[in-house]
Nucleic acid binder design. Structure first.
Lengths: 144, 144
DNA sequence: TAAAAATAGGATAAAATTATCCGAATAATT
DNA sequence: AATTATTCGGATAATTTTATCCTATTTTTA
């Protein structure tokens, strides 16, 4: 569904958010360890998220990654997915046609419609805060 | 959402079904042309679908691909997707966790639940006949 | 029986995704 | 000012997905 890069990006964002609530920056190393991802690859993804202003990166000693505490609840899952995978998941045609709309639909266009819309809706309505709180409370997990 | 291979597989199946209603076998070349896919790659996918007994292949002159006319309405989209991409789309964890279930959910497990279920449902309920008829009636399209 | 028309399938290549390595830049601390 | 702890970013490699090529095999037809 999502690319590996996007999966890592979502998990990393949650972990960074979690720490940002406590005013702690987290290092690449700590992130990769927590979410069980390859360090260098994760670095690229974090750079990407930083370029999209979803997270903030601070170089040098005591540096690391953070998210503005007050922005966490306004960051939507869709922003993260969009930054890494683009919008083709819920905008592109299910069968890869170049043009696929009501006027010129692919064979599964209508069938997919509600699935795609529900996915889009979910991604646009879910914010980082909810996800982070579930980790904090031990209701959800970032690994295994 | 689906792999390119799966997209080609679905489109090819529809085109084969369409012709099978009229008792016509279709050649690899005709299929690839119709669905705008690379011929040799499409051949591999068709072999795969044949191995899974979703379509039937006939070698030699006047050979080609066909589907039992009376089976078309009982072939579900899920069978095609499963044969080519496996079941990870609607069974795997959205964030790639090895174990992700009610007892040990990933952060988006619950949010994804209904999307995944709707997708699964749609794939399991949609059959080849419906899709083929939409092409036949000119309501849907296989290319562009 | 030979030729022609097909698919089958192994080997290989190209492209995209995932992953690794390393030096440069930056910032805090000593 | 030097050292240390970091991220940045370019180069490269491994893996997976997508695509191509070529020969073998099968079947029909002349």
């Amino acid at each position: 569904m999502f690319s590996k890069a996007c999966e890592y990006g979502i998990k990393a964002s949650i972990f960074i958010a979690l720490n940002s609530y406590e005013g702690k920056r987290v290092s690449l190393k700590a992130i990769a360890k927590e979410i069980n991802s390859p360090e260098a690859f994760t670095a690229k993804i974090l750079q990407d998220l930083a370029r999209h202003s979803i997270i903030n990166s601070v170089k040098g000693a005591h540096g690391g990654f953070e998210i503005d505490k007050y922005a966490i609840s306004s960051i939507k899952l869709s922003q993260i997915v969009n930054a890494i995978d683009g919008d083709s998941i819920y905008k592109g045609c299910g069968l890869g046609l170049h043009t696929c709309d009501e006027d010129h639909p692919c064979p599964v266009h209508d069938k997919f419609k509600s699935v795609r819309e529900e996915l889009k809706d979910m991604l646009e309505k879910t914010n980082l805060e909810e996800l982070a709180l579930d980790i904090k409370s031990g209701v959800a997990f970032l690994r295994t």
